[in-house]
Amino acid sequence: MNKNKGLHDKSASQDQIDIIEQKYARLKENEPMKILLNAAKEYLTEKGQEKNGS
């Protein structure tokens, strides 16, 4: 992941969500991991939307 890309635009957030999903997909799933993954996806999506004023 390009860490210099920043976390604040919508596409950067979507890139980051994709990478997180790939990493989590490699793990044995348990309930806490599902909660963490969903929290991360929602957090990054909302942040991207906020930044874009939508």
């Binding site: 992941m1 860490k3 976390l7 980051q16 990478i19 997180i20 990493k23 989590y24 490699r26 793990l27 044995k28 348990n30 309930e31 806490p32 991991m33 909660i35 963490l36 969903n38 929290a39 991360a40 929602e42 957090y43």
Partner: peptide
């Protein structure tokens, strides 16, 4: 998960369920 720095690998460990239960966090809090 948020990719803040790197401890030398690119992986994410699995959360220990007993630890998670003890923390008692929900999605909104996370």
């Amino acid at each position: 998960t948020l990719d803040l720095g790197s401890g030398g690998d690119n992986e994410i460990p699995i959360v220990n369920e007993k630890s998670w239960d003890l923390m008692n966090l929900d999605k909104q809090t996370v």
